[in-house]
Design a protein around this nucleic acid. Structure first.
Lengths: 104, 104
DNA sequence: CCCATAGATACCCTCCTCGGTATATACCCG
DNA sequence: CGGGTATATACCGAGGAGGGTATCTATGGG
């Protein structure tokens, strides 16, 4: 199973997630909106599914895909210790210096 | 030039960034800490350099690498519209519903 | 000066990913 | 049931990325 970072590396997968932000979508809807062949969307959705980015709700032959938070939250968590880099307010920097230690 | 997401996809590159959080490092120091051959570290540092994640400060034959904020901030910005997914407080959700629109 | 040290670059080889196309599967409807 | 629709899967081929090793370049020290 790929890491969330590897999953987000492909632009098409990020675009699928962007679309799903506006609400759940069927495979065919995504393919049409993105101008991509359906099997390609299905393949990437499988990767997004396996890595927890999306969930499926079957409805007869239709599959409705929706966002799931966990992997995105994991990426946000990884980013957190870097925040002080661009949020250079002194209070945050001070908090950073308090918690800084050599990552093992 | 690869996107920040593609750069972060490789675990070794993320580990390099993690080390640099504790302060600037020489190439050899990174190689030793990570248990990786020096040319491999150099190659990944070049990618991190070209994509703006790190900056170099030459010192004779030494090269001191340090973190740079921009690409990490860009990833954080991309994540921002997803935050409501896992921070499900009603006020944030309300703010989300106010700004939600179909991404073109 | 010459050697040692630090780092970058070049080259090779393998493996995996991605898109494309064809085909299979599931399900509804008439 | 038969055809059509919606989606998944299989297979292929090309390209690129990553690690390994050898070598080049630059610089300081004896």
């Amino acid at each position: 199973m790929p890491t969330p970072f590897e999953v987000l590396a492909l632009p098409l997968r990020r675009e699928i997630l962007d679309r799903l932000r506006a609400g759940p979508r069927l495979v065919g809807e995504l393919a049409a909106e993105l101008g991509v062949a359906q099997p390609i969307v299905s393949k990437q959705l499988k990767i997004l599914r396996d890595s927890g980015f999306v969930a499926v709700q079957p409805d007869a032959q239709r599959r409705r895909y929706a966002l799931r938070p966990e992997p995105l939250a994991a990426v946000a968590d990884w980013l957190e210790p870097y925040r002080w880099l661009w949020e250079r307010h002194l209070d945050r920097l001070g908090a950073h210096l308090d918690t800084m230690e050599d990552p093992s």
